[in-house]
């Protein structure tokens, strides 16, 4: 089953005088269960692509199908709905909410899904245990190391068991040991059935993926599977 299918996806950034085409007719597909890395130099449009795939931004043209439905004309409300049910995010800068504890951060997607308190507790504890963070449940993000914070972010991304996990430079702010740790987690999740799409500019990280899509100046220039590295 196709999880992602884009056709001629376009994104243009406009200021008063300059118009920059961040994505130029990008067409790609991602199958269920894949682990795909999107690579390219700074400014090639890989984060823009991830934002569009994660429905965090709106495309200016082309089509974007997620889980078999066309989303390019979705309203804000529909996009929020799809995000909370089917997508998980891991960001380079962790993006944890500083005012919330580890437990509360991880619990947040379940709150938005309207899951009851008892079930929330059970599911959050389960995922924190798996990430070996249960003893940190009442800590605030700023009390944790970078690696720990990113593990919290991964826990939050998967607590509602989304079919698709989007990771934007997940190891960018981590030392190599912690980075390895996080990539291990993503691999594990992928092996358990979650489709993972990761933006990275690290060749090392990209090796964890089974397929690499390379972008340059907003266009797909190369696709290859791991066997072709």
């Amino acid at each position: 089953m196709l999880i992602i299918k884009t056709e001629n996806l376009e994104k243009v950034y406009r200021t008063e005088e300059v118009q920059t085409k961040a994505l130029n007719h990008v067409s790609l597909t991602v199958e269920q269960g894949e682990f795909v890395a999107i690579m390219g130099p700074s400014g090639c449009g890989k984060s823009t692509l991830l934002n569009l795939l994660g429905l965090l931004d709106e495309p200016d043209g082309g089509s974007l199908q997620l889980l078999g439905t066309e989303t390019s004309r979705y309203s804000e409300r529909q996009r929020a709905e799809l995000r909370k049910r089917s997508l998980g995010f891991v960001f380079q800068s962790f993006n944890l909410i500083d005012e919330l504890t580890v437990f509360e951060n991880v619990e947040l997607p379940l709150r938005y899904l309207g899951v009851g308190a008892a079930e929330r507790r059970q599911r959050v504890e389960q995922v924190l245990e798996k990430m070996q963070l249960l003893h940190r449940r009442n800590h605030f993000p700023l009390q944790l190391s970078g690696g720990q914070q990113q593990r919290v972010a991964v826990a939050r991304a998967v607590v509602n068991a989304p079919p698709l996990l989007l990771a934007d430079e997940p190891t960018g702010n981590l030392d190599s040991a912690s980075g390895h740790d996080v990539l291990g987690l993503l691999t594990e999740l992928n092996e358990a059935g979650t489709t993972v799409l990761m933006v990275t500019h690290s060749e090392h990280d990209a090796r964890y993926a089974r397929r690499v899509i390379r972008l340059l100046d907003g266009q797909v220039v190369l696709e290859n599977s791991r066997s072709q590295f």
Binding site: G54, K84, P109
Partner: peptide, 13 residues
């Protein structure tokens, strides 16, 4: 930033 995170996690407006 918090708004962005909450929205990414599916918070409606």
């Amino acid at each position: 930033k918090e708004v962005g995170i909450r929205k990414a996690l599916g918070a409606s407006r």
